[in-house]
Amino acid sequence: MLRTFSRTAWCLALAAGTGLAAQDGEALFRKSCMSCHTIGGGVKTGPDLKGVTTRRPREWALAFIQAPGSFIDKGDPVALQLLKDANNVKMPELGITAAEADAILKLIDELTKSGKVLGSKGIDRPPTPLDLQKGKAMFEGRLRFAGGGPACLSCHSASGSGTFGGGRLGPQLNAAPGKYGKNLATTIENPAFPSMVNVFAKKALTPEEAFQVAAYLHSVGTQPPPRKDIVFPIVGFVGLLGSLALGGHLGRKRFRGVRKNLVPKA
């Protein structure tokens, strides 16, 4: 039984390690690229990728998709220009394999030839007060996302959000509008951040929801929220003291006398 179990475990470990990702270019693009890029839909945080293989050598594009940071580190002029154009937002290391990068490039070639468009620049209208109200409610979780995704507050904070402040797993988001500008909504709609990709893979925000959350973030200003972290540990410590007092009270009639007599004889 143990051997069978171990074999199963190691087969599964090997499968996960070697990667069983389907080489579906469109699925890969939607999962990893669409938060910042379109194919024929216009410039977002990153460039429109329509015709990218005619603008750059294919080998360069293949290598760049797999490890964009290394191109910046070695001072590649094209990579540095792209970084500048993207308002210094670095393309994240997404762990894309050579085969996956090839599938993405094939998709780009195919759509470039056919003239089809994938990805858009999102909703383009000024936000209303209702948008801001809904965006705040969704950020905090009071209004659930239609796809069932967790509220932003679980991991993030922004000025004025949550009675006791936001989460600390992810970054504080007051600076996000300045970083992503008008592309914030599409970045939220298709997050390519490693910790969010899988969580939201089947629970993506609708374009409307992403627009409203982005509108709320644009409205909160660039000042980071006052840190309310101290309240949480203080409540925990006071609760601990209260519990100790309760424990002592509940156990006040325990059989101390009987055991004290027995212990010296032990």
Binding site: R142, S154, T163, F232, G236, G239
Partner: peptide, 17 residues
């Protein structure tokens, strides 16, 4: 349950205690 920030805080605090 956590959709209400106060309820979230109550849950987190009692868990911390």
């Amino acid at each position: 349950w956590n959709a209400n920030p106060l309820r979230l805080f109550v849950l987190e605090s009692t868990a911390l205690i």
